[in-house]
Amino acid sequence: MSTLLEEGYRTAARLTREHGTTYYWGALLLPPPQRRDVHAVYALCRLADDIVDEPDKTPHPSVPAHGTPTERLDAFRAWFFAALARGTSDEPVMASVIDSVRRRGTDPECFERFFDAMALDLTHSTWPTWPALRDGYMEGSAAVIGEMMLPVLEPTSDAARDHARSLGLAFQLTNFLRDVDEDLSRGRVYLPQDELARHGAAPHLRQVTPQWRTFMAEQVTRNRTLYAHAADGLPYLPEASRRCVGTALTLYQRILDRIEAADYDVFNGRIRVPAHEKLALFGRQAAVGALRPSRWTGVRGRVDRHQQR
């Protein structure tokens, strides 16, 4: 591997470690070549997301530094596709991304949908319904991430695709539920407006009311259903990938547990899974080796119990 690529993959790993800890911990269970590819996909998404969410942040050298967020995102998008067409880049992180995408044969159309969704963040602050949020925004910001990661995970069947998409949706919905306060500060509400109205819930109040509790309980149930469908796809992955995805899935589900334990108070500090819990789960999965699919049937059971409440 060239010095340029080595530097790019190292930086991508650092970005993943700093901003996507669940992805980082899960990827540690993969062989190094797959691990690098996870980092590369995450880094591309992170850099594009920063243009949209943190326009005042000093950008990474691979990100255009001047212009409006729309102009910078358009320039970053054009740069990515130009580098993909050339098959390389002289910037280390972009070089690692292009190397990974071409080597894994990731469909370039995935990145068209991804950049389209990032652009929507600059024009949309609310979404009227769950189908509108899911199909209008999360299709390109979440479901497609599952599709991008799938070639890296080396599935044994094409049937894994729908489950990978569900996992992307599940991860992002958990983020939406956890980050309500942070998103409000950016002027955005990634929650279905019709369902908020039906419950009489008002996130802008930043208060846990009975109406907010019932709204959030409904969202958590939806979220767990997505995780259950994602877990059903684990048997389509080879053992290392099963351990990686299963670990990430479990850690993200624990965020939902903690949201419930906090009485749905997502307004007073970011809810996190403590590092010692992540380390303990990682240690167990690293020690046991391959996960049998039955290890994850507990995910389905927990969803069923919550739906019966």
Rank of each mutant, 00 (worst) to 15 (best):
M1K: 15
T3G: 00
E6V: 03
R14D: 08
G20D: 11
T22Y: 13
L30G: 02
P32R: 12
R35F: 13
R36F: 06
D37R: 13
A40C: 14
C45M: 14
K57N: 03
S62C: 09
S62W: 14
F76C: 12
R77N: 09
A78W: 15
W79K: 15
A85R: 15
R86M: 07
D90W: 05
V93M: 09
V93F: 12
V93K: 09
S96M: 11
P108D: 13
E112D: 14
E112L: 14
D116I: 01
M118N: 13
T123F: 05
H124P: 03
H124S: 12
T126D: 13
P128N: 06
T129D: 00
T129N: 02
D135M: 03
G136P: 08
A142M: 08
E147D: 13
M148N: 05
M149K: 13
P151R: 15
P151N: 15
D162M: 12
R165K: 15
F176R: 04
V180H: 03
D181P: 01
D183R: 05
S185C: 12
S185G: 15
R186A: 05
R186G: 06
R186D: 09
G187C: 09
V189S: 07
L191C: 03
P192C: 06
D194V: 00
E195N: 05
G200D: 00
A202L: 10
A202E: 15
H204D: 11
V208T: 05
P210Y: 04
P210V: 06
Q211D: 14
M216N: 04
A217C: 01
L226I: 01
L226A: 08
Y227E: 00
A230T: 08
G233N: 07
R242Q: 15
R243N: 12
R243T: 11
V245F: 12
T247K: 01
Y252A: 02
Q253W: 07
L256K: 01
I259D: 09
D263H: 12
D265L: 01
D265I: 01
V266R: 02
I271K: 09
I271N: 04
R284F: 01
Q285G: 01
A286E: 12
A287M: 09
V288W: 05
A290R: 14
L291C: 10
L291D: 09
L291P: 06
V299Y: 03
V303L: 11
R305N: 07
R309C: 02
R309E: 11
